[in-house]
Design a protein around this nucleic acid. Structure first.
Lengths: 233, 233
DNA sequence: GCCTGAAAATTGGTAGTACCAATTATTTTT
DNA sequence: AAAAATAATTGGTACTACCAATTTTCAGGC
């Protein structure tokens, strides 16, 4: 009869409570045994549903305490790759290698083909980036950083690279940035290095030096990789 | 001890099989009872993991039949381009640039990390390829060619490259090969060049010379591009 | 009266068994 | 040889039992 399995129905029921506000953020869910009874399902099926919602980041469970509702706005949208990258930290190095090659190639072709419109756009982003560096606005810095990379992708005039940047690469960049942004940088050295690296890429693209642009971008990715390694082995 | 729950560990074990290719698309997983025993977890915990992967669309289960691997991971990445390439033939040069960079990078990391198993596999394919060249079996030559590139991708030991090769790159390769294979080659010069290029890549990978491998692969892709240009402007 | 701390109840985590229903493989019958 | 009946396998669900971490309760002492 049931189009969907009992566990799926249970998951729907839980999601409904999360959506209609009857279980606000931070609240503790009824105990599994009681909740299973009220939903009319076994504790097994209920746990399957809960486990899935936990994996999606909507719930967290604390041993001996209960299951709680988390802030679901962050993890609402996730691609299959995001989930995999989050679950398998060792995959991060694979994706970083991929990023390194792709961003390097993109910078190469950007330096080869950037026209006046492209250069003007990138220059504007560089100004935003510099201003964000100086004022220390981390949020604007992150946004300008992302815009910079996508502007480079546009300037490459290659649909393939452009789509990669709009899809996977953007996701990977977000994932890395979240880990790297929260770090302390008391001396401001890292911020300074990042600024120098972006200017290096921009300079090579502006002067139409493909290989210099590639090397500058590779150095930038390598820098983020090394900084990431320093923090997480 | 365990930072993560048993169910989460089970989920990662399943994901690992999906990522490293030991469970290809369409394959049927071992029965839940048997799989739970091999993983050393209870069937309940295993089912929680499976349920989550089903919800993410990576697995589908059929009543009384088994659990199967879907092609979500590959289609999620390759589908946008499949449509684009089909709709816009002039996109071919963009995709060739993309192929050039990706295959070059893959050869680089293959030379860096290929182990004895990888080398043995590649060597076998090289022998098939040589035999196909000599006997002039175009069909076997094409198949061995494709296997060669994918074996290189496996030897790179990078899940990202591996999946790209299994997805979009395979599609692009098919697209190119069909145009290139059907051409006449009376003097046998092109076949001879192709053979020399494959041997060049194989030699660099075997000797663990990353940059030589990259350059050899780039030369190979450039050759196919030039031959394609000669025929279709 | 209030604090302390140990015992008890509660809760999520895991394992195991049993049974059902759908599918598949095997055997039997025609 | 084909078809039908049967047995074995598989996912789906439920239930019980126990463990370990947490919270609550409550007795005892100051």
């Amino acid at each position: 009869m049931a189009q969907h399995s009992v566990a799926q129905q249970a998951q729907r029921a839980l999601e409904a409570h999360l959506l209609d506000g009857s279980w606000p953020v931070g609240v503790r869910l009824p105990a599994e045994r009681a909740l299973a009874e009220t939903l009319g399902v076994s504790r097994n099926s209920l746990r399957e549903a809960i486990f899935c919602l936990k994996a999606r980041g909507l719930l967290v469970s604390k041993w001996g305490s209960g299951v709680f509702v988390t802030d679901r706005l962050q993890t609402a949208i996730s691609s299959p790759w995001r989930q995999l990258v989050a679950d398998h930290p060792d995959l991060r190095w694979d994706t970083l290698e991929f990023r390194r090659e792709m961003e390097g190639a993109t910078a190469h072709y950007a330096a080869l083909r950037a026209d006046k419109t492209d250069l003007k756009k990138i220059e504007g982003i560089i100004k935003r980036l510099t201003r964000a560096y100086e004022t220390g606005e981390k949020n604007e810095e992150y946004k300008a950083d992302a815009d910079f990379h996508e502007a480079i992708a546009e300037a490459s005039h290659n649909s393939m690279f452009l789509y990669l940047h709009a899809g996977i690469l953007r996701m990977l960049r977000e994932h890395i940035s979240l880990n790297l942004m929260g770090m302390e940088d008391p001396s401001g050295k890292i911020t300074d290095d990042l600024r120098r690296q972006h200017l290096g890429v921009w300079d090579a693209v502006r002067k139409h030096q493909p290989e210099a642009a590639r090397q500058a971008m590779l150095a930038h990715i390598d820098f983020t990789r090394i900084e990431l390694e320093r923090r997480q082995g």
